[in-house]
């Protein structure tokens, strides 16, 4: 499904510090046992999140099982030029999710 949502302002002034919000649909499954069958359920969490601007990472996060399902993260960035943001989430199952957004500096 359309998993990730990101909110980035379309325009900013040079040097402005903007707020970026991100949300992704993910169970953040802890290692546990199935309540009914008793079969083990493998851990599958997003363990790494990275925010890049024009290819350069400016925020990286390492998560464990204590981050809630459907992880929400908001953070800031000092905008120096027009360009493209790329957000990357990686989970235990080897899946990579990405989202992109553009910003114009007036």
């Amino acid at each position: 499904m359309g998993k990730a949502r990101v909110k980035v302002p379309k325009k900013a002034k040079k040097g402005e510090i903007i707020t970026i919000k991100t949300l992704i649909k993910h169970k953040m499954q802890r290692a546990t046992k199935d309540k009914k069958t008793g079969k083990p359920i493998k851990r599958n969490i997003i363990h790494t999140f990275e925010a890049k601007f024009n290819g350069k990472p400016f925020l990286t996060a390492e998560w464990d099982t204590g981050i809630s399902a459907n992880p929400y993260t908001a953070f800031t960035h000092r905008v120096s030029e027009s360009g493209e943001y790329e957000f990357v989430w990686k989970d235990d199952a080897g899946q990579t999710y990405t989202a992109k957004a553009r910003i114009e500096v007036a």
């Binding site: 990286t60 099982t65 908001a74």
Partner: peptide, 22 residues
Amino acid sequence: VYVATFKFTPDSGKAWVSTRMR
């Protein structure tokens, strides 16, 4: 006990993060 680490850079502008935890 370890929940998460957020690594900033000077480009972050602020050392600020908002998230949700268990």
